[in-house]
């Protein structure tokens, strides 16, 4: 296996640490992902999938264990360091679209590059246009995101996640709020981008038939990895 793009070693997470209601929700997770892997993360509700995704995405810190991103120990990074690393290496797709309604579809896609660079430029707009084209929304570039359907919004979110060419896209139930047809096409889009661009994906899903079509399926139950299977090639 090539060098992993990320590695978790005995990662633990407790909420409300140091208080009487302290609860550990992740009990020592060991996990590594290779470049270009297309993984499903499954498990019952409340098992800790979102918590795990937030930790991998550097939105939250583990309370125990180690998280390496490209061999780099993230424990050593301060908030600004985490923010910079997050912007460069990780793309997010959330369940509830999470687009910014004050901006157009195109501007939403540009946003990660804009916050990274500080000032807008033509190159960003071109890249955002190409990405919108890839997700089949070129005609909607100037649309207000509120006027898009749920499936369309999720496509914009995927284009946005890819804006800075991240090593990995983390998607938390990206199809959870979509009808079967829209869910299918959003899933296919991610799969296609993974094949063409080699971007890794880690997708939380409750849809087992979609999970079956991933390279690898990781099952979390009660804060532990219960199974980790690779699909037969």
């Amino acid at each position: 296996m090539a060098d992993p793009i990320l590695e978790l070693i005995g990662v633990r997470k407790s909420y409300n640490q140091g208080t009487p209601v302290e609860t550990e929700v992740l009990h020592g997770i060991d996990l590594a992902m290779a470049p270009g892997e297309f993984c499903a993360l499954i498990g019952p509700s409340g098992s800790g999938k979102s918590t795990l995704l937030n930790i991998i995405g550097l939105l939250d810190r583990p309370t125990g264990g180690k998280l390496l991103i490209g061999e780099r120990d993230t424990a050593a990074l301060d908030d600004a360091g985490l923010t910079a690393l997050r912007g460069e290496t990780i793309g997010f797709v959330f369940q509830n679209h999470h687009l910014i309604t004050a901006f157009t579809a195109l501007e939403n896609v540009m946003m990660p590059i804009l916050v990274g660079r500080g000032f807008p430029n033509g190159e960003m707009a071109q890249r955002a246009d190409r990405l919108l084209e890839q997700v089949g929304l070129a005609a909607w570039r100037n649309a207000k995101v509120n006027n898009l359907s749920g499936g369309q919004q999720q496509r914009v979110a995927i284009a946005r996640a890819l804006a800075r060419q991240p090593a990995i896209v983390l998607a938390d139930e990206p199809t959870g709020n979509l009808d079967t047809k829209a869910a299918e096409s959003v899933f296919e889009l991610m799969r296609e981008i993974n094949r063409r661009e080699g971007t890794s994906f880690l997708i939380v899903t409750h849809n087992l038939s979609l999970a079956d079509r991933c390279d690898r399926t990781i099952e979390v139950v009660d804060g532990k990895i219960l199974s980790d299977r690779k699909a037969a090639a």
Binding site: G87, E88, F92, H98, I100, M111, P112, V115
Partner: peptide, 16 residues
Amino acid sequence: SREIGILRAMGASRGQ
């Protein structure tokens, strides 16, 4: 606050 969270997730700094 949700939009602030998204911007932060996309790499916006606290200063920004």
